[in-house]
Computed example of a mutant assay.
Amino acid sequence: MIKVGIVGGTGYTGVELLRLLTRHPQVELKAITSRKEAGMPVADMFPNLRGWLKLAFSTPEEAGLENCDVVFFATPNGVAMQQTRALLDAGVKVIDLAADFRIKDIAVWEQWYKMEHACPDLVAEAVYGLPEINRASIRGARLIANPGCYPTAVQLGFLPLLEAGAVDTSFLVADAKSGVSGGGRKPETHILFAEAADNFKAYAVGGHRHWPEIKQGLEIFAGKPVGFTFVPHLTPLIRGIHATLYAKVSADIDLQSLFEQRYADEAFVDVMPAGAHPETRSVRGANICRIAVHRPQGGDTVVVLSVIDNLVKGAAGQAVQNMNILFDLPEDTALADVGMLP
């Protein structure tokens, strides 16, 4: 059995990890930490876990994390980098669901996250946990940087086009929409029901922290610098991301076949038939990215539609997928769920 610890178990990604891991046949949950809620049974906070989980929250110091095989950090940015070195030195593998190890350029990370990085040497070692491009490296990693939610949807949508050199890389646009759970479980005015319901708005147009993460990945796929614009929006959904991606076609290529062939062996990417329009509700609760590719009026613009559940393929599900790869388990272990519809 894989002995698992979770640091920061009181947020939405934390409870989603618990939902998935309690059903994992090879996992023994050893600790879920929260300084504020130490001693409280986890199921008292999250009643969906009643009958599935008997653990109580504990402080990180009392949790015995150094005795785990793998520790997930479902914490705010800046927490994992303070504790990861000690865990790695104890032989524990680490999967960070925050952004501490995603961006390789430390100066860029510090610019966007407004803090000094505590362990820049570990950033160089960390493997970016997007299995569709880094599966082999993930398998041998000690430290995995789980991708962000927007970056997962956007990168998977652009990946085949950039690998094939099929589009003009100087002008790539991602118009993306997210449900309110992407903002976390903390109380903030903009995600109150009366603020977010029956409303739709763009935000962070001048610069979102996921922009450098996405741009880093796109430039790796393309093998050169890219021009990239990212505009996020808040929608009155609980779960879901819908990314509409635009690029100019630069090669004579069958785009539908390109996507189908690139993802033919990927269990968690579903390329829909030509002309399809994927919906966020079709992936709710499932660790899958659904993609459709369009070429409106047969012109020189390609439009890719990419949808995920931000808490599953965009966070906790992808983290469990990475754990399965790390421990040489079938990737779909505990992840073979059908999306919840309606």
Rank of each mutant, 00 (worst) to 15 (best):
K3Q: 10
V4Y: 13
V4I: 15
G5C: 04
I6Y: 08
T10E: 00
G11H: 06
Y12I: 11
T13F: 09
E16A: 14
E16H: 15
R19Y: 15
R19P: 02
R19G: 00
P25T: 04
K30T: 12
S34Y: 01
G39C: 03
D44T: 04
D44I: 02
R50L: 01
L53A: 07
L55P: 11
F57A: 00
N67M: 08
F72C: 04
M81F: 05
Q83H: 15
R85F: 00
A86C: 06
L87K: 07
A99P: 01
D100K: 07
F101G: 05
K104F: 05
D105C: 00
Q111I: 05
W112M: 05
Y113E: 10
M115V: 08
E116Y: 00
H117C: 11
H117A: 05
C119N: 11
D121V: 02
D121G: 08
L122Q: 14
L122F: 08
A126C: 09
V127L: 03
R135N: 02
I138N: 02
G140C: 08
A141N: 06
R142Y: 01
R142N: 09
A145D: 02
P147F: 07
P147V: 08
Y150W: 00
T152N: 03
A153I: 06
F158M: 09
P160K: 03
L161M: 13
A164E: 13
G165I: 09
V167D: 13
D168K: 11
D168N: 14
A174E: 06
A176P: 13
G179K: 10
V180F: 12
L192M: 14
L192A: 15
L192C: 10
F193T: 12
F193C: 06
E195A: 12
F200C: 12
Y203M: 12
V205T: 13
G206T: 08
R209E: 09
P212C: 02
P212T: 05
I214L: 08
Q216D: 05
G217C: 13
A222F: 09
A222V: 06
K224Q: 12
V231L: 15
T235I: 09
I238R: 12
L245H: 00
F259R: 04
Y263S: 10
D265K: 14
A267V: 10
V271F: 02
V271C: 01
A276T: 14
H277I: 11
P278M: 00
T280I: 10
T280S: 01
T280E: 00
S282M: 07
R290V: 01
R295F: 03
G299E: 13
D300R: 14
D309K: 15
N310E: 15
K313L: 13
V320F: 11
Q321N: 11
N324A: 07
I325K: 00
D337R: 15
L341K: 14
L341V: 14
